[in-house]
Amino acid sequence: MSICSYLWCLIISLSCVAPLSGNPAAVKEQISLKREKTITNIVNGVPTIDKKFFARINMPYRDKVCGGVVIDRWWVLTAARCVDHVSDHQYELRNVFIEIGNFTTGSQQKKTYKAKAIVIHPMYNLTTNSHDIALIKLVKRAPMFRVAELCSEPVEYGTEVGACGLGSTPARHPSPSASLHEIFLRGIFFSFASFFEIDFCPDDQVCTEPITDGASICNLDEGSPLYKLQCHSRAAECILGIASHFVASEHSEINCSGGSNFASVPHPYEWISETIVFDFLFNSGHLDRSF
């Protein structure tokens, strides 16, 4: 590569990182204000049609819906909080349904899959939101073109990232949307969170703040993907996190416009890979949840 080409690539890379204003103390103070109340949908998002990897997880016997992402033909990644109530009892497994397909308004191009096994991260803790990651094995394989790549490394502090889900579109109307919506956020990642001593964003989480006022995840979007964006195109490049919960804004009427927290994917990347490889090699068909 010539020196000119290298410099051009460097300029493009740097342009993908959105600058943050303010000093570390101010950043910490702003985030603490959003931390007053947490509850557990995309709000103030825009319609999106190119997220082929998105999955919707339905558990009608619990009246529960979550998001997810296809990461292998046999596996869907979601939040542990979405499936931590599912025991190894076959009745509950048989009643976990995963929809994969086109989530644009009015589309019927979706296929429903059943769950064969559920594997929750061994260090998952609902109280602290620690390691809020789970894997669902499908009974039948999903199409290869729907498989998303996982990010093995975090992106730089302040980088613009994307998230999608089926939550409500405007903040004041909490009913879920009929189509997939997308929002853009700015990441406050663990490497810098530690530097700023932000105590609510440990290294197994990705904390974000809205770029557009009121853009956030909310209830019904748990398990939905956060992704790194391709430079200058805003297309998803790799999966960076899984929606865990959001930090409510004190000025939001229904508390859905504050910062959003995601379980980090690069942090448990090895565990995710090893779980899938272990199942492939031994083909046990029934995985120990504590693996």
Rank of each mutant, 00 (worst) to 15 (best):
A243F: 11
S244P: 06
S244Y: 02
F246I: 00
F246C: 13
V247L: 10
V247T: 05
A248D: 04
A248S: 02
E250P: 07
H251R: 10
H251E: 13
H251G: 11
H251Q: 09
S252V: 04
S252M: 02
S252Y: 01
E253R: 11
E253G: 07
E253H: 10
E253K: 12
I254V: 05
I254T: 03
N255G: 14
C256G: 06
C256T: 03
S257H: 02
G258H: 00
G258Q: 00
G258V: 00
G259L: 14
G259K: 05
S260M: 03
S260F: 01
S260C: 04
N261I: 09
N261M: 14
F262T: 05
F262I: 07
A263F: 02
S264E: 03
S264K: 05
S264V: 03
S264D: 01
S264N: 03
V265D: 07
V265Y: 04
V265M: 09
V265K: 02
P266F: 02
H267W: 14
H267L: 13
H267V: 05
H267N: 12
H267R: 13
P268W: 03
P268M: 08
P268Y: 04
Y269Q: 08
Y269L: 15
Y269H: 08
Y269K: 12
E270V: 15
E270D: 13
E270C: 15
W271C: 11
I272M: 07
I272A: 02
I272H: 05
I272C: 07
S273V: 10
S273Y: 07
S273P: 08
S273K: 11
S273Q: 14
E274K: 12
E274L: 10
T275M: 15
T275I: 15
T275H: 11
T275G: 11
F278Y: 10
F280Q: 15
F280S: 14
F280I: 06
F280A: 15
